[in-house]
C-alpha cells in the first residue's frame, strides 16, 4: 500500500532521513516510534508531498507519489496534525467539512454540515460545538475536531502525528480508542507517529522504530516486547542508558 525505499532528506547540514525504508500493508495500522528529532514527521510529510525527499522512492498503491496527480492523490488521505492545525477563522463544522465545501469533493452546504455533525458525533462531540470557533475549545476537543476533519471525506489512508501529545492520560486514552475504532471500522490504512508507548500499544498492528534517519526495527506489535534489539528495548522501557544515548 505505502512503500518507502531508501528515502534521504536533509535540511542544510542536518541529514534527517538517511535511507529510510518502510512498507505499510493495506488496512494495517502502522505506528512509527522514535525519539524527538529522528525524522518521524519528515517521514510522513514526505509521503504527503509536504516535504520533497532528496532521493529515494515513495509509492502509494504502486504509484510513484512524485508523479501522481496531486488533487486525486491527496483526496485519498486524511491527516490529524499534532496541534490540531484547525483553521482559526472557521467554525468547527466548517473545519470538519472543509473538503466538502470546496474543490472536487464539494457538496451542498446542508449536506456538508450534516456530514460534519455526523463526524463530530463519531468522535464524541455534541452538535452544540459545531458553530463554535476552535479557540473556544479545550485541547482534547480540538484534537477530536482534528480527527473528525481527518475522516470527514472517508479517506483510504489516515496519518496521525503525535495524536496524544499534550493531552492528559484519560483524554489520551479516549483519543487512542477513537483512532483504533475508526481505523478498524473504516478499513483504512493508518500511519501514526508517536513516542507515547501507551498510544503505540493501543493503536498498532505493526510498529517501526526510526533511529538516526533509518528504520531500525519493524515488526508486529506482539513482537515489540520480545525483540532483542537493544535500541527498541531501550526506547520502549525509557532507559537513560543504552545505545541511543551513546550515539547522541
Amino acid at each position: 500500500m505505502i512503500r518507502l525505499a531508501n528515502v534521504h532528506k536533509s535540511f542544510g547540514d542536518n541529514h534527517v532521513l538517511r535511507g529510510a525504508s518502510l512498507h505499510v500493508p493495506k488496512g494495517q495500522s502502522m505506528v512509527v516510534i522514535g525519539g524527538s528529532g529522528t525524522g518521524k514527521s519528515v517521514l510522513i510529510k514526505s509521503v504527503l508531498g509536504l516535504v520533497k525527499p532528496d532521493s529515494g522512492k515513495i509509492e502509494v498503491n504502486g504509484q510513484d507519489v512524485a508523479r501522481a496527480d496531486r488533487d486525486a492523490f491527496l483526496a485519498r488521505f486524511g491527516m490529524l496534525f499534532q496541534g490540531g492545525a484547525l483553521f482559526d477563522s472557521l467554525t468547527v463544522w466548517q473545519n470538519v467539512a472543509f473538503r466538502l465545501l470546496r474543490g472536487s469533493l464539494k457538496r451542498p452546504l446542508d449536506e456538508a454540515r450534516a456530514v460534519a455533525i455526523e463526524k463530530l458525533r463519531r468522535v464524541g462531540l455534541d452538535k452544540d460545538v459545531a458553530d463554535r470557533l476552535p479557540a473556544e475549545l479545550s485541547g482534547g476537543m480540538q484534537k477530536r475536531v482534528g480527527l473528525a476533519r481527518a475522516i470527514a471525506a472517508d479517506p483510504e489512508i489516515i496519518f496521525f502525528d503525535e495524536p496524544t501529545t499534550g493531552l492528559d492520560p484519560i483524554m489520551a486514552g479516549v483519543i487512542n480508542d477513537l483512532i483504533r475504532e475508526i481505523v478498524t471500522e473504516m478499513g483504512a490504512t493508518a500511519v501514526t507517529i508517536t513516542h507515547d508507548m501507551t498510544s503505540a500499544r493501543a493503536i498498532a498492528d505493526q510498529v517501526a522504530m526510526l533511529h538516526a534517519g533509518k528504520v531500525r526495527w519493524c515488526g508486529p506489535i506482539n513482537e515489540l516486547d520480545t525483540t532483542d534489539d537493544p535500541y527498541v528495548q531501550q526506547f520502549i522501557h525509557g532507559r537513560a542508558d543504552g545505545p541511543i544515548a551513546a550515539l547522541r
Partner: peptide, 17 residues
C-alpha cells in the same frame, strides 16, 4: 505566519487546497 507555524498551511495542502 501563524498559520504556517501551527501547521495550518500544511493542513490546507493535505485538504487538497
Amino acid at each position: 505566519a501563524t498559520m504556517k507555524v501551527t501547521e495550518q498551511i500544511d493542513a490546507l495542502v493535505t485538504l487538497s487546497t
